[in-house]
Each structure stands twice: as structure tokens, then as C-alpha cells.
């Protein structure tokens, strides 16, 4: 079953169309990435999924049930990590998580257990009694996540959860997301950091002006631009090179020799660098440099929308 199903979703603010007839489905176990510049409609979509905004047209289903008709069901199964820190600075970490989990109808010893579990999960197990005021940016971000997962949501929506934190905390958070995903939680993830999306998302949608303009795995997205990659290998004694043998390697489309550089164009999804290098070694060619040029998501985004992700 699909965790999330969006059909013809539209959101208007007056005359302005923020989300334009969007269709999307996310199946269970996915980490789904939303890529888009500011104002592209990501947050509006997310806010409609989490019932913060009303739907102008279209429908959203969570676990097969309409979120307007069965609002409570949808809410219980969704956890939301807002872009801005949404915690009470004057309450301890434990009280924060406990309060928000309590809103989801969890009571008594289970509440205590879930609160402790969530704090432990984000690595704040030893900070129960500490006030968020004393936390670093990364710790606050982690607490922000803990508040969203204590009620064990089936779908976790994370809106820029790693803004402005140190690399260590970011890695911690990314690993937590993966771990959560392995535990059976589907995730919607938005970020400005292309590398993060590339690293953790199983599927990605590029959103611009309220529309999904491309969608798929990162390889599928890259293949929109091109499905080949170029490997440039700098060589010292090119005359020893057996070009035909190189062409015979799986995935290689063409080989060209340009002065001291060999340019090998091969299919993007195949990793044949090992074989190429083995061949070069067999030919007793001295390798001075290896560079692979494959499109990344940033180029895909830039090419399709004509804009940079971060303006």
C-alpha cells in the first residue's frame, strides 16, 4: 500500500497558485526527497499533508485513507519535523518530547518508555533534565526530531532538518533517518543540501513553481540529462595503449585519445573503472590522473529549472 498518495493537489493563495495540480505517490519504506528552490511549493505541499493548510483542490491519502475525511487517522500516522525549531526552550528535553507524544494519545508507562526511547534514539539519552537553551544547534535539531518520532509515525516528514548545524550532527541525523527507515518508517525529506538528498533518498522529486517537473531515483533523474559518463584518464605513454581492448570493456561506448588524455565514454549506471584501470595496467601504461564526470543532481536541477537550488 502507498503511504502517501497525492492526486491533483492544488493550493491557491488568492490568485497565486502555490501548488499546481500535483500528483505523487510514495510507497512504504521509501525515503522520498523533495528538491526545489525556496517558494517552489515544497513547504506548502508538506503543510497540506500535515493538515496545517487546507486543500484547495484534489486529495491526499495517507495509508489509503483520505486525510480530510479521516483527519485523526492521518495525523496519528504522521510525524513532522518542521523547518524551524519547534520546541519549548523553557522546558526540559524530556518534558518537550513527553508533551508532544502525549498529544498523540500515548499515556502512562508507555509514554515514559516512548519518550526515553526517542531521546535515546537521537542521542540525547543523557540530557533528559537539560533545558534546550543550553543545547548546541545540532542538539536542538535532534530534539526537534525526537519530538516528532516518539509516537512512532508511519510517515515522517522532515523539512530541512539539517539547516545550520555542524557536519557531525548532520551525519548523526542522516544516520538516524536511515535507521528510522530501516525500522519501517517512510520519510519525506526536503533539503537544500543536494549531497544529503543524493545520499539518503530512494526517490526524488524536483519541484518548481508548484509542479513536479521530474521524479525518480537519482540515477533516473540524472539520466534525464544524459545516461553516459565520461572518464578522463591522464596517461604518460599513450602509444602503448590498446584502444580496441578498452572499447571491448562492458559499458564502454567510445574511447578517444587526446594527447596525454584518454576519454572513455561509458554507460552511466555501470561501474567499469576497475576493468579500465586493469586494462591500462596490463598495457603497462602509466596513469597520472583519473577524473570521472557524471551529472549530479545539482546539474539536473540547474538544467531543468534554469535556476540554482540555493539562490
Amino acid at each position: 500500500m502507498n503511504v502517501l498518495e497525492i492526486r491533483n493537489l492544488t493550493k491557491k493563495f488568492g490568485d497565486f497558485i502555490a501548488v499546481d495540480n500535483m500528483n505523487l505517490s510514495i510507497s512504504e519504506g521509501e525515503i522520498f526527497g523533495f528538491l526545489g528552490a525556496n517558494g517552489a511549493g515544497k513547504s506548502t505541499t508538506i503543510n497540506m499533508i500535515s493538515s496545517l493548510l487546507r486543500i484547495t483542490k484534489g486529495e491526499i491519502q495517507v495509508l489509503g485513507r483520505d486525510i480530510v475525511k479521516e483527519n485523526k487517522f492521518a495525523k496519528i500516522n504522521i510525524g513532522i519535523v518542521p523547518q524551524d525549531l519547534a520546541i519549548y526552550e523553557e522546558m526540559t528535553a524530556y518534558e518537550n518530547v513527553r508533551f508532544f507524544a502525549g498529544l498523540y494519545g500515548i499515556r502512562g508507562s508507555l509514554l515514559k518508555e516512548r519518550t526515553e526511547e526517542a531521546l535515546e534514539f537521537v542521542g540525547l539519552g543523557d540530557k533528559h533534565k537539560a533545558l534546550p537553551k543550553s543545547f548546541s544547534g545540532g542538539m536542538k535539531r535532534r530534539l526537534n526530531i525526537a519530538c516528532a518520532i516518539a509516537h512512532h509515525p508511519k510517515l515522517l516528514i522532515m523539512d530541512e532538518p539539517t539547516v545550520g548545524i555542524d557536519p557531525q550532527s548532520r551525519n548523526y541525523i542522516l544516520n538516524s533517518v536511515k535507521k528510522l527507515n530501516q525500522m519501517g518508517c517512510s520519510v519525506i525529506y526536503t533539503s537544500h543540501y543536494m549531497e544529503e538528498v543524493e545520499e539518503i533518498c530512494t526517490r526524488i522529486a524536483i519541484v518548481d513553481h508548484g509542479k513536479i517537473i521530474a521524479e525518480g531515483t537519482k540515477d533516473q533523474l540524472k539520466s534525464i540529462i544524459t545516461d553516459t559518463k565520461e572518464t578522463w584518464i591522464g596517461v604518460k605513454n599513450a602509444e602503448r595503449l590498446d584502444l580496441d581492448a578498452l572499447k571491448g570493456i562492458t559499458g564502454v561506448n567510445s574511447v578517444q585519445l587526446e594527447e596525454q588524455m584518454v576519454k572513455i565514454v561509458s554507460r552511466g549506471e555501470i561501474n567499469n573503472l576497475n576493468w579500465v584501470i586493469q586494462q591500462l595496467i596490463r598495457d603497462q601504461v602509466e596513469i597520472s590522473s583519473v577524473e570521472e564526470q557524471a551529472p549530479n543532481l545539482e546539474t539536473v536541477f540547474l538544467t531543468l529549472t534554469g535556476r540554482k537550488l540555493r539562490d
Partner: peptide, 11 residues
């Protein structure tokens, strides 16, 4: 404080 987001998102 933005906590309103969580409150509205809660059931």
C-alpha cells in the same frame, strides 16, 4: 515559537 505547527499537526 513555531510550536503551533506541531500542535496543529497533532491529532
Amino acid at each position: 515559537r513555531k510550536t503551533s505547527l506541531r500542535l496543529v499537526a497533532a491529532p
